[in-house]
Nucleic acid binder design. Sequence first.
DNA 1: AATTTAATGTTGTCAGTGTCAACTTTAGAA
DNA 2: TTCTAAAGTTGACACTGACAACATTAAATT
Lengths: 207, 207
Amino acid sequence: MALVTKNSYHHGDLRQNLIDAAIALISEEGISDLSLRQVARRVGVSHNAPYRHFEDKEALLAAVAEQGFQCLRVTMETAKQGIPIDSFQCLEAIGIAYVNFALAQPFHYRLMFGDYRYNLSKHSALAEAAQQSFMVLVNTIREGQSAGIFRSADPLSMARVAWSLVHGQSMLALDNRLQVKQGEEFVTFLKFSSQILIQGLAGNSAT
Amino acid sequence: MALVTKNSYHHGDLRQNLIDAAIALISEEGISDLSLRQVARRVGVSHNAPYRHFEDKEALLAAVAEQGFQCLRVTMETAKQGIPIDSFQCLEAIGIAYVNFALAQPFHYRLMFGDYRYNLSKHSALAEAAQQSFMVLVNTIREGQSAGIFRSADPLSMARVAWSLVHGQSMLALDNRLQVKQGEEFVTFLKFSSQILIQGLAGNSAT
DNA sequence: AATTTAATGTTGTCAGTGTCAACTTTAGAA
DNA sequence: TTCTAAAGTTGACACTGACAACATTAAATT
């Protein structure tokens, strides 16, 4: 509670400061070289101070990932705004926003998806944040179904397919494995890709 | 050249032995705790011996990843066999085999896809192996186009979409984020998913 | 207001890591 | 047979995550 000034013995909000510092370091250098001690140094605190706020390194990284999922959810929700629910563009806009999010914060995105190994059951807040961002997709599918533009299959399954696609694109792009130059060419690919997905989601059956 | 016995000073084929040991350790414990020294110990060699065969830790892991891509390619090629080129089942079979590969060797698969960060340009053999496994997909799409079951768009782009989907499914499944129980339910999901993809790939245009 | 207490931050330590440098052994070319 | 370069070893260094013991402080209790 106590709002303490920076240079007092007690730090004020060390927990959030550590998370912020970790995000900053990850954005600069990636995650493989990130050390708890480095984070502590950046905040100007002893190498063991983080252990008062996080059980271990994994717990700090889980908090960082959690924050990432919150950002991702907001990004997707923002992308949806202003686009009619009953249009194909809605899902396309979300997909493009999703991949752009990943490309804009490559290391942070990787961290969110298992670059470091979490015990998900141990970090329920992380699991919850991830679930909420997924729900943006599910709801969009549901709305599209109500509007009659998507087939009437299980919306969860359909959302999982969409999620797999954008996640795969994001990861492969980050790995530099898609061989599509960033910029206009990449956007063209994303649109092509979402067109294929949407067409698949629209159709009614028939193998 | 010289085929030396195990217990001589010179080891015989230390390079491959190190790769094998690394794969074994990764399969057992994952990659985050893997150390070069551990690998060396497993092979029964001093902690610095690996440096005669690999520039650094990254180089060893790149070799492990490369081997993984070769396996993946064989897996996909095998899955294709016996299934008519002009049938939708061909792509489905490859997709299912792909995801099953990932699920069967979770840590190895992750390693192949950037769980450790490679300088891809520095490890050209790895890039080459990855490219070859991707070509299985591209060729399947091309053959499907010749048979008239897929639209006549750029096969590379189409293959990238397919790859993104199966890669995304694999990663999300490994992260335990799909919430689909392994087993029959999961196979059902994979088939549903490939049906959506194939329908999208088949269609001719119309947003 | 004084005292206690629990939360927070620090120092010291440990085994383990990746990598460098210097040394030793060995296989095969000269 | 000698020489040399490849292959393996030993020793060192700075760094890491984590533990234990200690110090400081904010705030709850008296």
